[in-house]
Computed example of a mutant assay.
Amino acid sequence: MDRIDGLRAFVAVVDAGSFTRAGERLGISNKLVSKYVAALEGQQGITLLNRTTRALSLTLAGERYLAAARRVLSSIEELDAQARADEGALSGRLRVTAPVSFGEIFVAPLTVDFLAANPGIEIDLNLSDRYVDLAGEGFDLALRIGILADSSLIARRIGRTETWAVASPDYLARRGQPLHPDDLRAHDNIRDSNASAPHRATFVIEGKPIGVPLPGRITVNNAQAVRRLALAGEGIGLIPRFTIAEDVAQGRLTRLLTGFPGPQLDIQALYLPQPFVAPRITAYLDHLRRNLGPRLETSPAPAPEPPPDS
């Protein structure tokens, strides 16, 4: 067995969660996948996977080996891509992670467009609001919104959005409308834990950025969850424009504090430092940056709310 086949089989099993789905991904039988992984374990003299009738899990040695296996396979793909770069054809696989709301509205359709123009590319898109470990989990790119913590990752800005303060007409009828950012101290604020400082927000007041406390009883980790709670009249939410522009246009939410610009959020793509950036990564980033701006301006409507009893 070629050791590279073993590495590909092992990583595919981990990513797919089963030998059968790994075989479908690789275009071989599940028995051959199992044979490759067993042979790899035999060559290394370690057990990489715990196997039961119901589930698979990595052993401690398997967890350490996985990161190294991903790096080896990534290097091989980069060599292949470099060899084909002069031919102008993109090929290979990209693993991308993005926030859920932003990913559903923008990244997924833009990815479909990119794949249509590049039939040799395969993309595994993972939507999650948690901060993933690119090296440990084998992702090529992470798309993130807002201020980034200090990091050794390479960051490339692909867009920008603004944050709007909004509330439902029902909430404002009960509690009154804030006319100044300081008025938020007397309101129920729905905080987003993905913000750099969930308990505070920065507004431009008299030409200067000023931080304002956001008291509240509800903190969630997803912009759509903040939106749903605001629609339900639970308080005031600070939400990216693209998530609630249609709600504001239709009167379901009221935009507040329009004379005080809220936080501007950079949309950035992050990737690991590497001596050679695969052409497929560069092309995908160029595609996102070129097409994201116009779509952010039009801000497609979020999915409609389900009926209360559904």
Results as ranks from 00 to 15, higher is better:
Arg3Asn: 09
Leu7Phe: 06
Leu7Val: 12
Ala12Gly: 10
Val13Glu: 01
Val13Phe: 01
Asp15Gly: 02
Thr20Pro: 00
Gly23Met: 05
Ser29Gln: 13
Asn30Trp: 11
Lys31Ile: 15
Tyr36Lys: 15
Ala38Phe: 00
Glu41Arg: 10
Gly42Ala: 07
Gly45Trp: 05
Ile46Tyr: 07
Ile46Pro: 00
Leu48His: 02
Thr52His: 08
Thr53Leu: 11
Ala55Pro: 10
Leu56Cys: 02
Ser57Tyr: 00
Leu60Ile: 02
Gly62Glu: 03
Ala68Ile: 06
Ala68Cys: 04
Arg71Ser: 13
Val72Asn: 09
Leu73Met: 12
Leu79Arg: 15
Asp86Arg: 15
Ala89Asn: 00
Thr97Asn: 13
Pro99Cys: 09
Val100Leu: 09
Glu104Ser: 14
Pro109Cys: 12
Leu110Thr: 11
Asp113Gln: 14
Ile121Pro: 00
Leu125Asn: 09
Asn126Tyr: 12
Tyr131Leu: 14
Leu134Asp: 03
Leu134Tyr: 00
Phe139Glu: 04
Arg144Pro: 00
Gly146Ile: 11
Ala149Val: 10
Ser152Cys: 04
Gly159Asn: 07
Thr161Met: 01
Ala173Pro: 00
Gly176Arg: 06
Gly176Leu: 09
Gln177Met: 14
Pro181Gly: 13
Asp183Phe: 02
Ala186Leu: 05
Asp192Phe: 06
Phe203Tyr: 11
Val204Thr: 13
Ile210Gln: 15
Asn221Asp: 10
Asn222Gln: 14
Ala225Glu: 11
Arg228Gly: 11
Glu234His: 09
Ile236Asn: 02
Gly237His: 06
Thr243Gln: 07
Arg252Gly: 05
Leu253Thr: 11
Thr254Ser: 06
Arg255Thr: 05
Pro261Glu: 05
Gly262Pro: 14
Leu272His: 07
Pro275Arg: 12
Pro275Glu: 08
Asp286Ser: 10
Glu297Pro: 01
Thr298Pro: 03
Ala301Ile: 04
Pro306Phe: 05
Asp309Ser: 15
